[in-house]
Design a protein around this nucleic acid. Structure first.
Lengths: 205, 205
DNA sequence: CGAGTTGGCTAATTCGAATTAGCCAAAGTA
DNA sequence: TACTTTGGCTAATTCGAATTAGCCAACTCG
């Protein structure tokens, strides 16, 4: 009954593993448990499946953004919560963020798919940059801005500080996407990174 | 006469732009200025072209590694040169490294191609990680190790410090690969990053 | 010189994958 | 109940792209 959605899910899985061009309509159909021609009852053609995935991601993303904005303004109003930020807490937050993005099935697959398709047209490049480069940076930048105001972090350039926090996380994430075996190693580095970050920028530096 | 090499060059260009699966043998032939079937006088099939590109990269890389090893041991012997490292000099080095990797035609194309193919098999994943993740980190880690010894940089964890230096460079490089228009922005961030890095880890921090 | 090799070409051939045609049963609905 | 829609299937069809066959001119070197 929800075949239409199942098609998107299975297609995303396949696209994220092999890239759009290497996935056959028949592969998707197989995984859904139908025959290739049946798939055309739901989508005009292969490309439409891909486009629907991108659209779904946009939809999900906007929901999430809305939710985060609410959190954000709450947080701004109540800057007090940042004052209590200890190294342990920063560590926990960083790790949670990392593991969520890394393991969340939908995020992981979508990110891998976009990685493989990012050079195909400008629009996809923009989506990639937005989701994995610019938005995380500006969101974290906002949080760090509060923390600087609250005196928990010290810097005269929040943007660069945020880059110093996020770039290693991004770097480690790409490693894990490519070689999942290396996750333990990456997690160890992540901890080292955040601890060191706290030492460099934290209250008592 | 050097058609065989021209094929590799044009194929690399195309693969880096569109990915292996979206490039037709005829496209490559067109750019070389021959007909598709003629191409088979030089390579057994399309895959063999791809493999030859990878092999060539391995060859080039080993040459370069050899050259760097010589430089490396020289440098170790003469640690004095690191003592004179100023912020300006670090900035210049970082920027040169960045721009070289970013613009050097062969590096750029090969990196983009691997980006698109990295999930197709473990071997390619390994090549990617080696070239753009592990080797830069360990090479720069070595240099920074000397600098720490020389007292130019201060840290109790060279590996994390190196991650803090390299991850932003990697992050900015992926932006420029995806959206070349953003290079000016990336260069500004690069400068900010290196200056801040120097302030955080440099002699007078 | 003259046989052989090289590297190009045109004209097939093959083949795999996307898509269409057209049938049918079950579910929904007037 | 009878008509329509939905979503599945099998059997074409189409078509594009990789590869092969087989021809030929130019170069190579004994």
């Amino acid at each position: 009954m929800n075949t239409k959605q199942r098609i998107l899910d299975e297609a995303l899985t396949l696209f994220s593993e092999k890239g759009y061009a290497n996935v056959f309509v028949g592969d998707i159909a197989d995984r859904v448990g139908i025959k290739a021609p049946s798939l055309y009852k739901h989508y005009k053609n292969k490309r439409a499946i891909f486009d629907a995935i991108i659209e779904e991601m946009n939809r999900r993303f906007e929901e999430q953004a809305k939710a985060m904005q609410i959190n954000g303004t709450d947080a701004a109003a109540d800057a007090g919560i940042y004052k209590s930020l200890s190294e342990d807490r920063l560590l926990k937050l960083g790790r949670e963020f990392f593991l969520y993005y890394l393991h969340d099935d939908y995020n992981k697959k979508f990110r891998k798919m976009l990685t493989l398709e990012q050079f195909h047209d400008m629009e996809l490049a923009k989506v990639y940059s937005k989701l994995y480069v610019d938005d995380p940076l500006s969101y974290q930048g906002m949080l760090f801005g509060f923390m600087v105001t609250a005196g928990v972090l010290k810097t005269d350039n929040v943007q660069i500080m945020t880059l110093h926090f996020y770039a290693p996380i991004y770097y480690l994430m790409t490693i894990c996407d490519r070689e999942p075996d290396r996750e333990p190693e990456a997690l160890k580095l992540l901890d080292g990174h955040i601890k060191q970050f706290d030492r460099l920028y934290g209250r008592n530096s």
